[in-house]
Amino acid sequence: MAEQVALSRTQVCGILREELFQGDAFHQSDTHIFIIMGASGDLAKKKIYPTIWWLFRDGLLPENTFIVGYARSRLTVADIRKQSEPFFKATPEEKLKLEDFFARNSYVAGQYDDAASYQRLNSHMNALHLGSQANRLFYLALPPTVYEAVTKNIHESCMSQIGWNRIIVEKPFGRDLQSSDRLSNHISSLFREDQIYRIDHYLGKEMVQNLMVLRFANRIFGPIWNRDNIACVILTFKEPFGTEGRGGYFDEFGIIRDVMQNHLLQMLCLVAMEKPASTNSDDVRDEKVKVLKCISEVQANNVVLGQYVGNPDGEGEATKGYLDDPTVPRGSTTATFAAVVLYVENERWDGVPFILRCGKALNERKAEVRLQFHDVAGDIFHQQCKRNELVIRVQPNEAVYTKMMTKKPGMFFNPEESELDLTYGNRYKNVKLPDAYERLILDVFCGSQMHFVRSDELREAWRIFTPLLHQIELEKPKPIPYIYGSRGPTEADELMKRVGFQYEGTYKWVNP
């Protein structure tokens, strides 16, 4: 592979701008107003304001973009700056750019259920340069409990009458099928589907988006991507930290609602779906819905739930269990780990287990898709061969690698495990991989909904998990304890083995 010439960040961002501006969906010269509902909250200060700053800094926003914060707290732009700027990672050389960014910011205080507050917000936006005809993007960085009041008031008082209007809704989209349907029906009564952007930030990850290209742009994968060759698929999300004093919020939802029903299920769809007619948003989402419709409700015998306990040999936070978090209700049975087996009941995947695993306070930070292939028929190497695996590593250190057998150097035919490896950090030294939120917010500006969740996708996802969630809430089974920093409950490994996964433990990928 030829040595790549190092590029400056300015040059890299210039390439990104060229890609972005050559499309006809990006209205570079139009006025846009980006409204952050819930501007005083954690999500706004840690993710949304920093993301908008990065896009502005790199010249990736339309030229005439204004940012308006809205929340109940009586704040000023200076207050917003004070709480969000520490997350910007701005350099001293960017000081003038930073001043320009905050000059485009404003803030309006108001209630979430008060019509007069929204009329005041609308008047404020109209007073901005060309504000009355601007395109408006409303980001709901809010708890779902206020979605209905907020969307109703936005629709009645704050819509642009000339430009387009788009609304970005953060997960969780309800707690179960019934609450999700209620919320979807409410929002759909106010906005068209092409105006609604239900954001799952995992769909903005580079390697998640790469799944489609790997599958449908490489001839070698087509013939082997089926039940005849693939023994099982494992989708993993692991965090090495616990709730760390923020367990009160987590306890309301648990690990299945927080990660599995959305992030992991979306990745499953991209692995299992048929080739779409095109890369058009609805063509892709149509195929994802077909996959979900082929999955039956989760069966309790295919589920393992766990909850982390303190590690007596650990240090600091590792010595504390979930129930030691003062914000967690006493005696909570909320799971911090889950392993679930699903089956896609169609011709391509009949009988292939899709194993979804996620948890907190585990032994490493990792998100990946792992396809394990069947054993080689007619073994001539005296059971020395391990199964081939194709691994798409989402985070950290984005990579695609194939675990395969090669001859060990020497005189004899002794096979050993090795890999074919594409590590993004080595291959793409001159490429700026956008943060997931950067990519998705740019998608909203461009009107691309491919990486957002459609209402029928959402409904099918909740259909699969709601009976299990209701059973857990009714019966309150005690989750299996696992030690902070471990791989999780051993019962999860036993479940995976029972459905056909072979864990060798003899080879570990190392970032080159």
Results as ranks from 00 to 15, higher is better:
A149R: 15
R136C: 12
M125H: 01
S179P: 07
L121R: 01
T145P: 09
R192Y: 13
E156Y: 13
I33H: 08
I256Y: 00
V68H: 00
F221C: 09
R57A: 08
K205P: 02
M37K: 02
N229K: 00
N229Q: 14
F138K: 03
A134L: 09
I33A: 09
M212I: 09
N135A: 10
I168P: 06
N153C: 11
N126F: 08
L20G: 00
D114L: 10
Y118P: 04
N126R: 14
I196H: 01
Q209T: 10
K205R: 02
P144H: 02
A39W: 03
S188N: 11
E99L: 06
A134C: 13
A231H: 07
P62A: 08
F88Y: 08
G204H: 01
L177E: 08
R166F: 01
D200R: 02
Q28M: 11
Y139T: 06
F237L: 09
H155K: 14
R166A: 02
G69R: 02
T145D: 04
D24S: 12
K238M: 02
A109S: 13
G247H: 07
G174C: 01
V77G: 08
F87R: 06
Y112L: 01
R227L: 07
M207K: 08
N64M: 08
S29H: 13
Q119F: 14
R219C: 08
P50K: 09
K238F: 02
M37I: 15
N64K: 14
T151G: 08
H186W: 09
D79R: 09
T76K: 13
K47M: 04
T76P: 06
F88D: 05
T51N: 10
P144W: 03
G247R: 05
P223L: 06
S106R: 12
Y49F: 08
H155D: 11
I255Y: 02
L43R: 02
F253N: 11
K82P: 06
S123D: 15
F253Q: 01
I162M: 14
F34C: 10
V150R: 03
E170R: 02
I230P: 03
L140R: 01
L140K: 03
F21D: 12
K205S: 01
P50Q: 08
L177V: 14
F21M: 15
V108I: 14
H32G: 07
G110P: 03
E63T: 12
S189M: 14
V208D: 04
N135E: 06
F21T: 13
H155Q: 12
R120P: 10
I162Y: 14
W53M: 00
A134P: 09
D251M: 00
P172I: 00
L183Q: 01
G247P: 01
S179L: 04
R9Q: 09
S179D: 07
E206D: 06
K205L: 02
Q178S: 15
F26V: 15
A6P: 13
A149K: 13
L140D: 02
H124N: 11
G131D: 13
L140P: 04
Y249C: 02
T236S: 13
L60K: 07
E156M: 13
E156V: 14
E3L: 08
G245I: 01
V169R: 01
I196Y: 01
S106D: 08
E93L: 09
N153W: 10
V12F: 15
A109L: 09
R74D: 14
S106F: 14
N185R: 12
Y197S: 01
V169E: 00
S84T: 13
N218D: 04
S132C: 15
F216V: 03
I199P: 00
F66C: 09
P86T: 09
G163L: 03
D79W: 06
Q178P: 13
S160N: 14
F102N: 04
R104D: 00
L140W: 07
Y70L: 11
F102T: 02
L16Q: 12
I220Q: 03
A71Q: 03
I33T: 11
N122Q: 14
N165C: 15
R219A: 12
F34M: 13
R192H: 12
I168W: 02
E239H: 04
A217G: 09
N64T: 09
Q195C: 12
I255A: 07
A141E: 01
F191K: 03
A90C: 09
D194S: 14
D194G: 10
E170W: 04
L121A: 05
V12H: 15
V146Y: 02
Q195N: 08
L183G: 03
F26H: 14
F88M: 13
D228K: 09
I168L: 12
P172C: 04
R57M: 04
E206T: 06
T91L: 13
R246C: 04
L214H: 07
V108N: 06
L121N: 03
A90Q: 08
K95E: 14
G14F: 09
K89R: 15
E156H: 14
N229E: 07
F173P: 02
I256M: 14
F138C: 03
T76V: 10
F221W: 15
P62Y: 05
V146W: 04
R198V: 05
Y249M: 02
A217R: 02
L203Y: 01
L61P: 00
L235C: 12
A2T: 14
I196R: 01
T10I: 11
I80K: 00
H124A: 14
I80V: 11
S189G: 15
I220D: 00
A44V: 05
G69Y: 03
L128H: 11
Q209Y: 05
R219F: 08
Q209P: 04
T236G: 02
P223M: 08
E85V: 13
Q119P: 09
N226S: 13
H201S: 01
P144E: 04
N185D: 11
A134N: 15
G110E: 05
K89H: 11
P92V: 10
D42N: 05
E94F: 05
T76R: 13
E156K: 14
T243R: 00
Q28W: 12
Q161T: 14
S189Y: 10
L190G: 06
Y202S: 01
A217M: 06
H129W: 12
V208R: 00
V77Q: 11
F191T: 02
L128G: 07
N185T: 11
Q161I: 11
I167Y: 07
S160M: 07
I167T: 07
R246Q: 03
E156A: 15
S29M: 09
H129Y: 08
A103V: 08
G254Y: 01
L130H: 12
L61M: 08
L177M: 14
I154A: 07
L142V: 12
I48L: 05
V68F: 07
N226W: 05
D30M: 08
I256W: 01
G222I: 07
L137Y: 08
Q133G: 09
I36N: 03
R198P: 01
V150Q: 02
E252W: 07
Y107L: 08
P62N: 07
R246M: 02
A116F: 11
E206S: 06
A134K: 09
R192F: 10
I67R: 01
E85Y: 09
K171G: 02
L142D: 02
T76M: 11
R120F: 10
G222D: 15
Q195G: 09
R219E: 04
K205M: 03
E156C: 11
G110A: 08
H27G: 10
G23V: 15
S160T: 12
Q133M: 14
N226M: 07
V146L: 11
I230A: 06
E156W: 12
L140M: 15
L75F: 12
I67W: 05
L55R: 04
S84W: 08
R136P: 01
I154Y: 02
P240F: 10
E85A: 12
Y112C: 03
I196L: 11
Y118G: 05
A109V: 13
Y107N: 03
R136F: 10
A217E: 00
I224S: 10
T91K: 12
H201Y: 01
N135I: 05
G23K: 14
E99W: 04
D176L: 00
S179V: 02
N226F: 06
L183K: 03
N122D: 13
N226A: 07
E170T: 05
L96E: 08
I35L: 06
K95Y: 11
S179M: 05
I80G: 06
F66Q: 12
L140A: 08
G204W: 02
M159Q: 14
L183S: 01
A6K: 13
R219H: 09
G222S: 15
V146P: 06
A127P: 06
F241V: 05
I196M: 07
D228E: 15
Y49G: 02
L121M: 11
G38S: 01
H155V: 07
N122L: 07
Y147Q: 02
W164I: 10
F237K: 04
Y197M: 00
I162E: 14
L137R: 02
P143I: 10
G204Y: 04
H155L: 06
E19N: 14
F56T: 05
D79G: 09
H186P: 04
A6W: 13
I196A: 02
R246H: 02
S117C: 12
Y202W: 02
I15N: 08
R104S: 06
R198A: 05
G163F: 05
R227F: 08
D194P: 09
